[in-house]
Design a protein around this nucleic acid. Structure first.
Lengths: 244, 244
DNA sequence: ACCTGAACACCGTTCAAGT
DNA sequence: ACCTGAACACCGTTCAAGT
């Protein structure tokens, strides 16, 4: 298991953001088997969900015997953990590093970026939410968040609580959104998923669940980016240092 | 698959709350095989986590051939889905039904009750967060929440958004808390888990993560009931109808 | 250091058959 | 309606062996 923590690199071009894939060495594109295992696992996760990402499936995809995987990873859980680390490494810290911007906007950028990275790999989301988030990438993200809330005027303890609240909100939202997709594979367009929810809630018993029926439109759109932002702003309004 | 929605019963004794297990018929305690399957699955989930709750394991536990399970459930996913429904049915609606109480207190009671029910079965939490929450029990809970927020003075759409935000917060919190436990089986006492986190964060690199190190105590306690309540109150402060 | 063959103890699920 | 025996195509992981 490689415990090295290669630093992320990120580029911001006046608003447009480019997330740079970290490569340990910029040399020839000779991917190690260890990297191949993660590539394969992630591809299988993306295509067929967690069931498809078996050790044997991974090995088959890179043309190697199943037990070759154990040269690099102690067990399947270690592979999954490494995938979580890799995905957290995809998060572009540049989008919220700019201290000139008002802090709520920076938090919003972070939340949207994190959500986008996570929902790009729905099959991996259960892994992130079932295993401990204690790797170096998670720590680095948290450190950033703490700094952000410090800039907002919160003391160390408040910043820590606010950071955790934000993490809970983003991961919780994405987890429920992915769970709502029912099937494995990439997420359908948001509009289609909302539409399918609308149909489901329209079929609900109006007598037994009158309020649910009355708010069906809004409930159907609970997984939307718009409502993600609404909730995020409510959370931020709660965290914001009280001016009294 | 039984699609009947037996209504929950709940008893409130002046603050003390008793959650009553629903039995379809109050007659003799002759548990059907279908119920036995769920009992066995939940017991295995509690003891050894999701890996232990295999179809074969369930069947063995109730002394039946593995394929007997398929008389009642289409597949393993259906068993898991039924467990989610059962656990949501354990939530005592009585604790927040009292409309005399101030609404933030009612929401707090609901959140604490839901959290308690979920974390009583940590092995089942991944199931709740990975599958769609669209069963009758989830609908009933949501309907209650909508009514609660309506009592608070929110309109239908705001109530729907607020309800979803609360659900995201509670499920997200519990999911991260359970994930942090590392091992299967019942959760260790909160104090022990916080202590273990404290040790882990004390070992973190102070130079690389200075803010994390400075707030280690608070971060260690992120999974605590106290901080769950703190976050809940921040969320409620954000939802609360603005008086302007 | 890296990979394999073979084996072990498991899985989920199906099918035909029994009562 | 409810359950079983037997089988199928899979699992994750280990061990000894090969280069």
């Amino acid at each position: 298991m490689s415990k090295q923590c290669t630093l992320y690199k990120s580029i911001v071009n006046g608003g447009d953001t480019v997330s740079v894939p970290r490569s340990p060495r910029p040399g020839p594109r000779r991917a190690s088997t260890e990297e191949q295992v993660l590539d394969a696992a992630l591809a299988l996760l993306d295509d067929g969900g967690i069931d498809a990402a078996s050790v044997r499936g991974i090995a088959a995809r890179i043309g190697v015997a199943p037990n070759a995987v154990y040269t690099y990873f102690a067990d399947k859980a270690a592979v999954y953990q490494a995938i979580v680390e890799r995905l957290l490494g995809d998060v572009d810290h540049g989008v919220f590093a700019d201290r000139e911007m008002p802090w709520p906007q920076r938090v919003e950028s972070l939340a949207l970026e994190l959500r986008a990275r996570l929902s790009a790999h729905p099959g991996a989301v259960p892994l992130m939410v079932s295993g401990p988030l204690g790797g170096p990438r998670a720590l680095a993200l948290n450190e950033r968040l703490l700094g952000l809330f410090a800039d907002a005027g919160l003391d160390a303890a408040e910043a820590a609580r606010g950071s955790y609240l934000l993490i809970v909100y983003v991961f919780g939202s994405v987890a429920l959104e992915v769970a709502d997709a029912h099937r494995p594979g990439p997420l359908q367009p948001e509009s289609e998923r909302v539409e399918r929810r609308r149909e489901a809630f329209a079929a609900a018993d109006t007598e037994q669940y009158p309020r649910t029926a009355a708010a069906a439109e809004t409930i159907a759109a609970s997984i939307s980016t718009e409502q993600f932002l609404w909730g995020l702003r409510r959370v931020l309004a709660g965290i914001r240092p009280r001016s009294r």
